[in-house]
């Protein structure tokens, strides 16, 4: 028996999300009195695989070989499923991000394993196996019972703390070669979002809505984000109008995020917007309308004009940082 955790890499490297997943899987393994095994697929930078060993796993499998430089969902799902069978996994953990969402359902059919998707806590019980997950776009949670011998969990980002624990796990390098004819997905073009902090990774997010009035008013908002090491985001009408890029759109139909701190500036707080940000630990709202629904979701608020408040906020943060 084991708990297998799939850790995606970005250009051969892991990030905090990977370590969250590994920490989570190790805790689930503890609950089941078994061991956790981390699985990486694709080429890693040297020394990278070892890092997974700091979060409680007892084995690290690094699988690499020809044909894995493109994410072909079918190919990847087959590799992960094969390792799950080989390692006798009764729980497989993945991230609830684009890649996890692409692979987990395919694994589910291959392994005939029920899925708990968007889980945000340790299992509520293991006999029966019950998980706590997002439902109704953040407006509720569900207790979902998984009735199969193998279960798949996709873990919501930023919902589990890192737990450092070194079990002296060895890295097992495995060569997996995929025949070119099996890879149906061909990449034509890649556009990487260079340099900027990714919205889904950010611990602080500064977000603007229609109350920012014009695309020309974003200067102080971006400056605030830069000072705080934060990512920038926006409401849907803002990206629909082309004031900001679509990758910044948060909410039910955009990105779902769970930073420690979310600034909602000139955002009314529509249900569909809150659906994407309600898991933030703290929300700060700045709005001219004291009755705006965003203040019901926020812990801290300023009733005022963003154009006037933002520059003062920037100054206050500068002062803080210079201390």
């Amino acid at each position: 028996m084991s708990v297998l955790v799939y850790t995606e890499n970005w250009d051969g490297k892991f990030k905090k999300l990977s370590f969250e997943l590994v920490s989570y899987a190790s805790k689930v393994a503890e609950m089941l009195n078994t061991k956790a095994i981390a699985l990486s697929v694709g080429k890693l930078e040297s020394g990278e695989a070892e890092k997974l060993g700091n979060y409680g796993v007892s084995k690290i499998i690094s699988a690499a070989g020809e044909g894995l430089n493109v994410l072909d969902n079918q190919v990847y799902a087959k590799i992960i499923a094969d390792f799950a069978v080989k390692e006798g996994a009764t729980v497989v953990v993945l991230a609830n991000n684009n890649v996890g969402k692409a692979l987990a359902p395919r694994l589910s059919v291959r392994l005939k394993a029920g899925i708990g998707a968007g889980v945000n806590k340790l299992p509520v019980s293991t006999e029966p196996f019950v998980v706590h997950k997002r439902a109704y776009s953040g407006n509720a949670f569900a207790h979902l019972q998984i009735n199969t011998p193998v279960r798949i969990i996709t873990l919501s980002q930023n919902s589990f703390e890192l737990i450092e624990k070194n079990m002296g796990a060895a890295v097992e390098n495995v060569n997996v070669s995929v025949d070119a004819s099996e890879v149906k997905t061909q990449v034509r073009e890649v556009q990487k979002q260079g340099g900027k902090i990714l919205l889904t990774d950010a611990e602080i997010v500064v977000s603007g809505g229609r109350g920012m009035k014009s695309p020309d008013n974003w200067g102080p908002l971006v400056e605030l984000a830069d000072l705080l090491g934060a990512a920038t985001a926006c409401s849907r009408p803002v990206s629909d109008e082309g004031w900001r890029g679509h990758e910044e759109h948060t909410g039910q139909t955009g990105k779902i995020i769970a930073p420690n701190l979310y600034f909602a500036i000139g955002i009314s707080g529509a249900t569909q917007h809150l659906a994407g940000v309600s898991s933030s630990k703290y929300i700060v709202a700045i709005n001219t309308d004291k009755d705006a629904p965003i203040f019901e979701a926020a812990q801290y608020g300023i009733v005022g004009d963003a154009q006037k408040v933002l520059p003062k906020l920037v100054e206050a943060v500068k002062e803080l940082k210079s201390k």
């Binding site: 969902n73 969402k101 998707a117």
Partner: peptide, 12 residues
């Protein structure tokens, strides 16, 4: 239910 699962399962 925010599952993100039906499409992937169907393909498999």
């Amino acid at each position: 239910h925010n599952g993100s699962t039906v499409g992937g399962m169907l393909s498999e």
